[in-house]
Structure formats: C-alpha cells, structure tokens
Computed example of a mutant assay.
Amino acid sequence: MNITSSSHMYSRLLLTGAAGGLGQVLRPRLKTRCDVLRVSDLSNLGEAADGEELRPAALQDRPAVMQLLQGVDAVVHLGGISTEQPFDDIVQANIIGAYNLYEAARIHGTRRIVFASSNHVTGFYRQDEVIDANQPVRPDGYYGLSKAFGENLARFYFDRYGIETVALRIGSSFPEPKDRRMLATWMSYDDLERLVVASLSSPVVGYSVIYGMSDNHHVWWDNTPAKHIGYRPQDSSEPFRAAAEARQPILDLNDPAVIYQGGGFVKAGPF
C-alpha cells in the first residue's frame, strides 16, 4: 500500500457513503489520517473542508466510479443501500456498484479497501450461538445477500489481483443501543473509528473479515481469527443495559427477530 511520507497514513483516501450516518461520523475523523480525503455520495455532501475533495457519484455508474478511484491509495467503502429493500434496488448499488468499485480499483492500482459488510451476512444464525468469520454465510435478506456477494468479490480481487480488503461485518453503530439485541451487536463511534483505522494501518491484511462490535459483555461473534488486524475495542454496551431492558422488559421467544441474530431483518418484506 502507498504510505505518504508525511505523518498521515495515506496521500489520498476515498470515503464512499460519506453523507450517510456512519459516513458523517467517519468523515472528520478520517481527514486526520490522510493528506486528501475524497468524499462521495449521492446525497448532499455540504461544503468541502480543508483537504477534502467532493465527488458525487452513483455507484452503478461505471464511468463515474472509474473517475472516482483515479489517484486513490485506499478506500473506505460505506456506499450503497444499508437496509432491507427490494432486490432490484439493492442490486444496483450493492452488487453492480461493488463490482464497479473493485474493477476501478484494479485499473487505477488502489491496493486496499475497507469494505462495509454487515452482520446480516450471518443473520440466520441463532442468538444462542457464537460464530466466527470462518463459518458459512447465512444471509437474512437481500441486503445480507448483497454483502455476502461483496465479500466474495473482495476475496476474488485479492486472490486474482492482490487488492487487500478488510470486510467489516458491522453490528449496530449508534450513540447507544436501541434495544436488547443491540446489547450484543453495539459498536460505539469511537470503536468504529478504531476498527477502520486498524483496518487501514495494519501492515498486511490480505483478505480478512472481522465483526464490528464493541467490548460487550454478551456477544455472538468471535473475532479471534481477525486478531492480526489489531482492533482492540475500548467501549461496552453494559452501561446502557438497564435502559435497554426497561424499554424491552419481555421478549417473545417465538419471535424470529428474537431467535435469530439478524433481528428484524429476518422477517422484513416481502416487497
């Protein structure tokens, strides 16, 4: 990977999905890690801060994505649809868009991508199971299916072309857990930054998959196979437990959203 000679990690870093919830969190934090931060989205990106380049682009627009990757050393790819939606919508941004991004990275020589995958890649494992990234995927919907495609695409582009990827199976990153499920899946914004920075800065990552969660007391995911990334979460959902349990004092143990790790995604649709 191309490391800048300054104190920054990269010369030019691309952040897609920069206008989304997590994109807005990471945008100012990633700017401190590179000489130039190129930000992209279809939604309003606001004004460019010092050291930023604004490049709106639709991921399914191949020529636009080809231009977007020009001169980029590494990518934090948050762009695309992040909720369960009809397949015809998801396929454009999440499947065609992912292909366009990786193909543009190959052509322009971008060597590392941090890919925002999702815990919904394995959403049909049960909440009474603990799994790691070496177990087979079990997507809980079209969104999870598209992220499973993205992970396989990333593996192919590493095996064939040497483009390194860290696929982040992000749990639930919000200011605090919204319900009891999120006591297991929650990741603080500070831990999100730690995870992304570790994924960008680890000397060798090859193709790696890691679950994005804080140091929660109850977890469903074992990140032992991704210890080489160097991610060490420092926050926990435990201070929010009482409030989450008060909001949801009783669980219906026959509800698929309670049985399976994907929560409500396992019963979203049909559309």
Score class of each variant (00 low, 15 high):
L69E: 10
L59Q: 05
E193V: 12
F156V: 13
K147H: 12
H108D: 09
V72F: 07
V204F: 07
I96A: 12
P233F: 00
S40A: 03
A246R: 14
M9K: 13
T16H: 05
V76S: 09
D159V: 07
G20Q: 06
S208K: 04
N223T: 05
D88W: 00
S117M: 04
Y207S: 13
D88A: 08
W221N: 10
S237I: 01
Y125F: 15
G23F: 00
D132R: 01
Q135G: 00
S82T: 12
V196C: 04
R181C: 05
S118M: 03
T83H: 14
F115C: 03
A257V: 08
L251S: 15
A116G: 04
V121P: 02
F265D: 05
D252L: 06
R55Y: 14
L30R: 01
R29C: 00
D73H: 14
L26Q: 06
K227Q: 11
H120N: 14
Y189F: 15
A198N: 12
G263M: 10
K31L: 14
H77Y: 07
R55A: 14
Y260M: 06
T110S: 06
A148G: 11
T4E: 13
E193G: 00
S7R: 14
D50C: 10
V209T: 14
V65E: 09
S201Q: 15
S6D: 12
P177L: 09
V75M: 13
L68W: 07
M213A: 11
R33Y: 00
R138N: 01
G20K: 05
E193I: 01
E47G: 10
Y207F: 15
D35F: 01
S146N: 02
N44K: 11
S5K: 11
P239N: 09
H217M: 04
T165R: 07
F156K: 14
L183N: 11
Q248G: 05
Q24G: 03
M187Y: 02
S199A: 15
D140L: 12
A64W: 12
A148H: 10
N254Y: 07
N94V: 06
R194Y: 09
Y161W: 15
E238D: 11
L42K: 13
G262N: 09
G51I: 10
S202G: 07
S173D: 07
G109Y: 04
N216H: 02
R232S: 09
V219G: 05
F271P: 08
P86Y: 00
I131G: 11
E193Y: 15
V130F: 00
S172I: 04
Y211D: 08
M187G: 02
L15C: 08
D191I: 05
K227T: 10
A198I: 02
E193L: 09
F149P: 10
L101F: 08
L69T: 15
Q261F: 04
N152E: 15
H108W: 10
S5P: 06
E245A: 05
R138P: 01
E103P: 02
P175R: 02
Y99I: 08
L59C: 07
Q85I: 03
S5W: 04
H218Y: 15
V266L: 08
L101N: 07
N152A: 15
R29H: 04
N223I: 05
G171N: 02
N94A: 11
P86F: 00
V209N: 11
Y207C: 10
D41T: 06
R169C: 05
L26D: 03
I131A: 10
I107F: 05
D222T: 07
A243L: 09
Q248E: 15
L192M: 13
S236L: 03
